[in-house]
Protein backbone atom coordinates (compact mmCIF):
# COMPACT_ATOMS: atom_id res chain seq x y z
CA UNK A 1 0.00 0.00 0.00
CA UNK A 2 2.94 2.33 0.70
CA UNK A 3 4.20 2.25 -2.85
CA UNK A 4 0.91 3.10 -4.58
CA UNK A 5 1.42 6.43 -6.34
CA UNK A 6 -0.43 9.47 -5.02
CA UNK A 7 -2.21 9.94 -8.35
CA UNK A 8 -3.88 6.52 -8.17
CA UNK A 9 -5.23 7.27 -4.71
CA UNK A 10 -6.50 10.61 -5.94
CA UNK A 11 -8.30 9.08 -8.89
CA UNK A 12 -9.76 6.38 -6.66
CA UNK A 13 -11.07 9.03 -4.28
CA UNK A 14 -12.58 11.07 -7.11
CA UNK A 15 -14.26 8.03 -8.63
CA UNK A 16 -15.66 6.92 -5.28
CA UNK A 17 -16.89 10.28 -4.01
CA UNK A 18 -18.08 11.69 -7.33
CA UNK A 19 -19.62 8.38 -8.37
CA UNK A 20 -21.23 8.15 -4.95
CA UNK A 21 -22.83 11.54 -5.45
CA UNK A 22 -24.19 10.66 -8.89
CA UNK A 23 -25.54 7.41 -7.44
CA UNK A 24 -27.10 9.41 -4.62
CA UNK A 25 -28.80 11.63 -7.18
CA UNK A 26 -30.23 8.55 -8.90
CA UNK A 27 -31.39 7.06 -5.62
CA UNK A 28 -32.89 10.40 -4.60
CA UNK A 29 -35.03 10.51 -7.74
CA UNK A 30 -36.52 7.19 -6.66
CA UNK A 31 -36.63 8.13 -2.97
CA UNK A 32 -38.51 11.31 -3.78
CA UNK A 33 -41.28 9.33 -5.42
CA UNK A 34 -41.26 6.55 -2.85
CA UNK A 35 -41.31 8.81 0.20
CA UNK A 36 -44.00 11.03 -1.27
CA UNK A 37 -46.04 7.88 -1.96
CA UNK A 38 -45.65 6.56 1.56
CA UNK A 39 -46.76 9.90 2.97
CA UNK A 40 -49.90 9.79 0.85
CA UNK A 41 -50.98 6.18 1.50
CA UNK A 42 -49.53 5.04 -1.81
CA UNK A 43 -46.93 2.48 -2.88
CA UNK A 44 -44.91 4.55 -5.33
CA UNK A 45 -43.09 3.05 -8.29
CA UNK A 46 -42.85 -0.72 -7.75
CA UNK A 47 -42.95 -2.24 -11.22
CA UNK A 48 -39.35 -1.96 -12.47
CA UNK A 49 -37.22 -4.45 -10.59
CA UNK A 50 -37.76 -5.53 -6.98
CA UNK A 51 -39.63 -2.77 -5.07
CA UNK A 52 -39.10 -0.53 -8.11
CA UNK A 53 -35.40 -0.19 -7.35
CA UNK A 54 -34.49 -0.12 -11.04
CA UNK A 55 -36.81 2.83 -11.74
CA UNK A 56 -33.93 5.39 -12.00
CA UNK A 57 -32.38 3.16 -14.66
CA UNK A 58 -35.63 3.05 -16.61
CA UNK A 59 -35.94 6.83 -16.30
CA UNK A 60 -32.40 7.25 -17.54
CA UNK A 61 -33.03 5.11 -20.60
CA UNK A 62 -36.19 7.06 -21.31
CA UNK A 63 -34.39 10.42 -21.04
CA UNK A 64 -31.62 9.30 -23.38
CA UNK A 65 -33.98 8.11 -26.10
CA UNK A 66 -36.40 11.03 -26.03
CA UNK A 67 -36.32 13.68 -28.70
CA UNK A 68 -34.34 16.83 -27.99
CA UNK A 69 -36.33 19.93 -28.86
CA UNK A 70 -34.91 23.40 -29.31
CA UNK A 71 -37.57 26.12 -29.54
CA UNK A 72 -37.59 28.49 -32.49
CA UNK A 73 -35.87 31.76 -31.68
CA UNK A 74 -33.88 30.25 -28.86
CA UNK A 75 -30.24 31.11 -28.44
CA UNK A 76 -28.86 27.72 -29.39
CA UNK A 77 -25.46 28.08 -27.74
CA UNK A 78 -26.82 29.16 -24.37
CA UNK A 79 -29.75 26.78 -24.59
CA UNK A 80 -27.34 23.86 -24.91
CA UNK A 81 -24.91 25.24 -22.35
CA UNK A 82 -27.37 26.12 -19.59
CA UNK A 83 -28.17 22.59 -18.30
CA UNK A 84 -24.46 21.81 -18.01
CA UNK A 85 -23.96 25.10 -16.17
CA UNK A 86 -26.75 24.14 -13.80
CA UNK A 87 -25.39 20.68 -13.05
CA UNK A 88 -21.67 21.39 -12.93
CA UNK A 89 -21.26 23.72 -9.90
CA UNK A 90 -22.94 21.37 -7.47
CA UNK A 91 -20.86 18.48 -8.80
CA UNK A 92 -17.67 20.49 -8.34
CA UNK A 93 -18.40 21.56 -4.78
CA UNK A 94 -18.46 18.01 -3.39
CA UNK A 95 -14.66 18.06 -3.81
CA UNK A 96 -13.97 19.94 -0.57
CA UNK A 97 -16.36 18.04 1.69
CA UNK A 98 -14.52 15.67 4.03
CA UNK A 99 -16.62 12.53 4.10
CA UNK A 100 -14.38 11.07 6.79
CA UNK A 101 -11.42 12.03 8.92
CA UNK A 102 -8.28 10.22 7.83
CA UNK A 103 -8.38 6.70 6.54
CA UNK A 104 -5.51 4.39 7.40
CA UNK A 105 -5.20 1.66 4.80
CA UNK A 106 -2.14 -0.57 4.88
CA UNK A 107 -0.26 1.84 7.11
CA UNK A 108 -0.88 4.80 4.82
CA UNK A 109 -2.85 7.86 5.87
CA UNK A 110 -5.36 9.09 3.31
CA UNK A 111 -7.47 12.19 4.02
CA UNK A 112 -11.05 11.38 3.02
CA UNK A 113 -12.01 14.25 0.78
CA UNK A 114 -11.01 14.95 -2.80
CA UNK A 115 -9.31 18.27 -2.06
CA UNK A 116 -7.94 19.84 1.11
CA UNK A 117 -8.34 23.55 0.53
CA UNK A 118 -7.46 26.32 2.99
CA UNK A 119 -10.46 28.22 1.73
CA UNK A 120 -12.75 25.19 1.46
CA UNK A 121 -15.96 26.92 2.42
CA UNK A 122 -15.18 29.97 0.27
CA UNK A 123 -14.58 27.73 -2.73
CA UNK A 124 -17.84 26.00 -1.98
CA UNK A 125 -19.85 29.20 -1.81
CA UNK A 126 -18.14 30.70 -4.86
CA UNK A 127 -18.68 27.71 -7.13
CA UNK A 128 -22.05 26.81 -5.61
CA UNK A 129 -23.29 30.34 -6.27
CA UNK A 130 -22.75 29.81 -9.99
CA UNK A 131 -25.58 27.27 -10.12
CA UNK A 132 -27.99 30.13 -10.64
CA UNK A 133 -26.48 30.81 -14.08
CA UNK A 134 -27.81 27.55 -15.45
CA UNK A 135 -31.29 28.49 -14.32
CA UNK A 136 -31.21 32.11 -15.49
CA UNK A 137 -29.55 31.45 -18.84
CA UNK A 138 -31.75 28.42 -19.48
CA UNK A 139 -34.79 30.58 -18.78
CA UNK A 140 -33.56 33.38 -21.00
CA UNK A 141 -32.28 31.27 -23.89
CA UNK A 142 -35.55 29.34 -24.21
CA UNK A 143 -37.28 32.37 -25.75
CA UNK A 144 -40.42 31.60 -23.78
CA UNK A 145 -42.37 33.73 -21.33
CA UNK A 146 -42.71 31.03 -18.73
CA UNK A 147 -39.05 30.08 -18.84
CA UNK A 148 -38.09 33.71 -18.61
CA UNK A 149 -40.29 34.37 -15.57
CA UNK A 150 -38.88 31.25 -13.94
CA UNK A 151 -35.35 32.44 -14.60
CA UNK A 152 -36.12 35.91 -13.23
CA UNK A 153 -37.59 34.49 -10.07
CA UNK A 154 -34.62 32.18 -9.63
CA UNK A 155 -32.25 35.12 -9.95
CA UNK A 156 -34.09 37.25 -7.38
CA UNK A 157 -34.54 34.36 -4.98
CA UNK A 158 -31.00 33.04 -5.12
CA UNK A 159 -29.42 36.46 -4.61
CA UNK A 160 -31.67 37.12 -1.63
CA UNK A 161 -31.04 33.83 0.11
CA UNK A 162 -27.37 33.48 -0.72
CA UNK A 163 -26.70 36.38 1.67
CA UNK A 164 -28.41 34.57 4.53
CA UNK A 165 -26.63 31.35 3.61
CA UNK A 166 -23.21 32.99 3.64
CA UNK A 167 -23.85 34.95 6.84
CA UNK A 168 -25.08 31.87 8.70
CA UNK A 169 -21.99 29.94 7.55
CA UNK A 170 -19.75 32.84 8.57
CA UNK A 171 -20.94 32.49 12.16
CA UNK A 172 -19.77 28.87 12.13
CA UNK A 173 -16.50 29.87 10.49
CA UNK A 174 -15.99 32.38 13.29
CA UNK A 175 -16.76 29.73 15.92
CA UNK A 176 -14.37 27.21 14.40
CA UNK A 177 -11.77 29.77 13.41
CA UNK A 178 -11.09 28.38 9.98
CA UNK A 179 -12.39 28.33 6.42
CA UNK A 180 -11.02 24.83 5.97
CA UNK A 181 -13.79 22.25 6.25
CA UNK A 182 -11.33 19.69 7.59
CA UNK A 183 -10.50 21.99 10.49
CA UNK A 184 -14.15 22.78 11.08
CA UNK A 185 -14.68 19.03 11.40
CA UNK A 186 -11.61 18.65 13.60
CA UNK A 187 -12.96 21.31 15.97
CA UNK A 188 -16.11 19.23 16.64
CA UNK A 189 -14.69 15.87 17.58
CA UNK A 190 -17.00 15.17 20.51
CA UNK A 191 -20.75 15.62 20.59
CA UNK A 192 -20.41 18.47 23.08
CA UNK A 193 -18.25 20.34 20.58
CA UNK A 194 -20.72 20.12 17.74
CA UNK A 195 -21.67 23.55 16.51
CA UNK A 196 -25.33 22.74 16.95
CA UNK A 197 -24.69 22.62 20.71
CA UNK A 198 -24.03 26.36 20.94
CA UNK A 199 -26.89 28.88 21.01
CA UNK A 200 -25.59 30.65 17.89
CA UNK A 201 -25.16 27.30 16.23
CA UNK A 202 -28.85 26.52 16.62
CA UNK A 203 -29.94 29.79 15.03
CA UNK A 204 -27.34 29.46 12.30
CA UNK A 205 -28.52 25.90 11.68
CA UNK A 206 -32.15 26.98 11.26
CA UNK A 207 -31.17 29.86 8.97
CA UNK A 208 -28.78 27.71 6.96
CA UNK A 209 -31.34 24.94 6.49
CA UNK A 210 -34.03 27.34 5.30
CA UNK A 211 -31.61 29.18 3.02
CA UNK A 212 -30.30 25.91 1.60
CA UNK A 213 -33.87 24.98 0.66
CA UNK A 214 -34.16 28.26 -1.21
CA UNK A 215 -30.73 27.93 -2.81
CA UNK A 216 -31.51 24.51 -4.23
CA UNK A 217 -34.91 25.72 -5.50
CA UNK A 218 -36.73 23.16 -3.42
CA UNK A 219 -40.16 23.33 -1.86
CA UNK A 220 -41.47 25.48 -0.31
CA UNK A 221 -39.28 27.87 -2.31
CA UNK A 222 -39.42 26.34 -5.79
CA UNK A 223 -40.54 29.52 -7.52
CA UNK A 224 -38.28 28.93 -10.47
CA UNK A 225 -40.50 25.99 -11.44
CA UNK A 226 -43.88 26.67 -9.85
CA UNK A 227 -46.05 24.43 -12.02
CA UNK A 228 -49.44 26.05 -11.37
CA UNK A 229 -48.22 29.45 -12.57
CA UNK A 230 -45.30 28.86 -14.92
CA UNK A 231 -45.94 25.43 -16.48
CA UNK A 232 -42.43 24.20 -15.72
CA UNK A 233 -40.62 27.45 -15.02
CA UNK A 234 -37.12 27.71 -16.39
CA UNK A 235 -37.12 24.19 -17.82
CA UNK A 236 -40.46 24.44 -19.64
CA UNK A 237 -38.79 24.15 -23.05
CA UNK A 238 -36.28 21.48 -22.10
CA UNK A 239 -36.64 17.84 -22.98
CA UNK A 240 -34.73 14.58 -22.87
CA UNK A 241 -31.24 14.52 -21.38
CA UNK A 242 -30.95 18.29 -21.05
CA UNK A 243 -34.02 18.26 -18.84
CA UNK A 244 -32.50 15.35 -16.92
CA UNK A 245 -29.32 17.37 -16.37
CA UNK A 246 -31.32 20.02 -14.54
CA UNK A 247 -32.70 17.32 -12.30
CA UNK A 248 -29.31 15.73 -11.68
CA UNK A 249 -28.02 19.20 -10.86
CA UNK A 250 -30.83 19.79 -8.38
CA UNK A 251 -30.27 16.48 -6.63
CA UNK A 252 -26.50 16.97 -6.57
CA UNK A 253 -27.03 20.42 -5.05
CA UNK A 254 -29.26 18.83 -2.41
CA UNK A 255 -26.59 16.22 -1.69
CA UNK A 256 -23.93 18.89 -1.29
CA UNK A 257 -26.14 21.06 0.92
CA UNK A 258 -27.00 18.08 3.12
CA UNK A 259 -23.33 17.14 3.41
CA UNK A 260 -22.47 20.72 4.27
CA UNK A 261 -25.21 20.84 6.89
CA UNK A 262 -23.86 17.67 8.49
CA UNK A 263 -20.29 18.96 8.31
CA UNK A 264 -20.91 22.45 9.66
CA UNK A 265 -23.34 21.72 12.46
CA UNK A 266 -23.18 18.02 13.31
CA UNK A 267 -19.47 17.31 13.26
CA UNK A 268 -19.41 15.58 9.88
CA UNK A 269 -17.75 12.21 10.46
CA UNK A 270 -17.68 12.58 14.24
CA UNK A 271 -19.36 9.64 15.97
CA UNK A 272 -21.31 10.63 19.11
CA UNK A 273 -19.69 9.54 22.40
CA UNK A 274 -16.86 7.78 20.53
CA UNK A 275 -14.27 10.46 19.69
CA UNK A 276 -11.67 7.82 18.80
CA UNK A 277 -13.89 5.66 16.60
CA UNK A 278 -12.53 3.83 13.58
CA UNK A 279 -12.49 5.96 10.43
CA UNK A 280 -14.95 3.67 8.62
CA UNK A 281 -17.43 4.27 11.42
CA UNK A 282 -16.87 7.99 10.89
CA UNK A 283 -17.75 7.70 7.21
CA UNK A 284 -20.89 5.80 8.18
CA UNK A 285 -21.81 8.52 10.69
CA UNK A 286 -21.33 11.16 8.01
CA UNK A 287 -23.49 9.26 5.53
CA UNK A 288 -26.25 8.85 8.12
CA UNK A 289 -26.19 12.56 9.00
CA UNK A 290 -26.16 13.68 5.37
CA UNK A 291 -28.81 11.10 4.55
CA UNK A 292 -31.10 12.53 7.20
CA UNK A 293 -30.90 15.99 5.65
CA UNK A 294 -31.54 14.54 2.21
CA UNK A 295 -34.63 12.94 3.69
CA UNK A 296 -35.57 16.27 5.24
CA UNK A 297 -35.54 17.86 1.77
CA UNK A 298 -38.11 15.35 0.55
CA UNK A 299 -40.03 15.37 3.81
CA UNK A 300 -40.51 19.13 3.73
CA UNK A 301 -41.42 19.10 0.05
CA UNK A 302 -44.37 16.81 0.65
CA UNK A 303 -45.54 18.64 3.77
CA UNK A 304 -45.46 22.37 3.11
CA UNK A 305 -47.32 24.37 0.47
CA UNK A 306 -45.41 26.82 -1.70
CA UNK A 307 -45.06 30.37 -0.41
CA UNK A 308 -46.22 33.40 -2.36
CA UNK A 309 -43.44 35.35 -4.05
CA UNK A 310 -43.89 38.47 -1.90
CA UNK A 311 -43.84 36.27 1.19
CA UNK A 312 -40.60 34.73 0.00
CA UNK A 313 -38.96 38.11 -0.48
CA UNK A 314 -40.28 39.44 2.83
CA UNK A 315 -39.01 36.35 4.64
CA UNK A 316 -35.63 36.64 2.96
CA UNK A 317 -34.94 40.31 3.45
CA UNK A 318 -36.90 41.24 6.56
CA UNK A 319 -36.58 38.12 8.69
CA UNK A 320 -33.72 35.86 7.60
CA UNK A 321 -31.13 38.50 6.75
CA UNK A 322 -31.48 40.56 9.98
CA UNK A 323 -31.46 37.34 11.99
CA UNK A 324 -28.32 36.15 10.23
CA UNK A 325 -26.62 39.51 10.81
CA UNK A 326 -27.65 39.44 14.45
CA UNK A 327 -26.34 35.90 14.73
CA UNK A 328 -22.99 36.88 13.29
CA UNK A 329 -22.80 39.82 15.70
CA UNK A 330 -23.73 37.63 18.66
CA UNK A 331 -21.11 35.08 17.63
CA UNK A 332 -18.50 37.81 17.48
CA UNK A 333 -19.52 39.05 20.93
CA UNK A 334 -19.42 35.48 22.30
CA UNK A 335 -15.91 34.93 20.97
CA UNK A 336 -14.76 38.33 22.19
CA UNK A 337 -16.06 37.78 25.73
CA UNK A 338 -15.33 34.10 26.25
CA UNK A 339 -12.05 34.35 24.40
CA UNK A 340 -12.19 30.87 22.88
CA UNK A 341 -13.34 29.40 19.60
Amino acid sequence: MQDVPELVIWIAKIVLIFGGMIATAAIMSLAERKVSAWMQYRYGPNRVGPFGLLQPLADGVKFIFKEELIPAGANKLLFRLAPALAAMPSMLTIAVIPIGTTAVIGGREIPLGIAQLDIGIMYMLAIGGLGVYGVILGGWASNSKYSMLGGLRAAAQMISYELTLILSILAIVALSGSLDLNEIVASQREIGDWNICTPMGVLAFVLFTIASFAETNRHPFDFAECEPELVGGFHTEYSAMRFALYFIGEYCAMTVMSSLNATLFFGGPSVPFMPDAHWALGVLAFLIKAGFFLFLFIWVRWTLPRLRFDQLMRLGWRVMLPLALFNLLATGAWIAFTGDH
Binding site: M122, Y133, I136, L137, L152, A155, M158
Partner: peptide, 25 residues
Protein backbone atom coordinates in the same frame (compact mmCIF):
# COMPACT_ATOMS: atom_id res chain seq x y z
CA UNK B 1 -6.71 31.50 -3.39
CA UNK B 2 -8.88 33.76 -1.28
CA UNK B 3 -8.87 36.49 -3.92
CA UNK B 4 -9.83 33.99 -6.60
CA UNK B 5 -12.74 32.67 -4.55
CA UNK B 6 -13.84 36.20 -3.64
CA UNK B 7 -13.63 37.21 -7.30
CA UNK B 8 -15.99 34.42 -8.33
CA UNK B 9 -18.24 34.75 -5.29
CA UNK B 10 -18.71 38.51 -5.49
CA UNK B 11 -18.39 39.36 -9.17
CA UNK B 12 -19.54 36.25 -11.00
CA UNK B 13 -21.89 34.97 -8.32
CA UNK B 14 -23.62 38.16 -7.24
CA UNK B 15 -22.97 41.28 -9.30
CA UNK B 16 -23.26 39.70 -12.71
CA UNK B 17 -26.42 37.88 -11.67
CA UNK B 18 -27.90 41.28 -10.88
CA UNK B 19 -26.81 42.50 -14.33
CA UNK B 20 -28.54 39.50 -15.87
CA UNK B 21 -31.62 40.21 -13.81
CA UNK B 22 -31.84 43.73 -15.20
CA UNK B 23 -31.11 42.65 -18.77
CA UNK B 24 -33.84 40.07 -18.66
CA UNK B 25 -36.30 42.77 -17.68
Amino acid sequence: QFMAAAQILVYAGAILVLFLFVIML
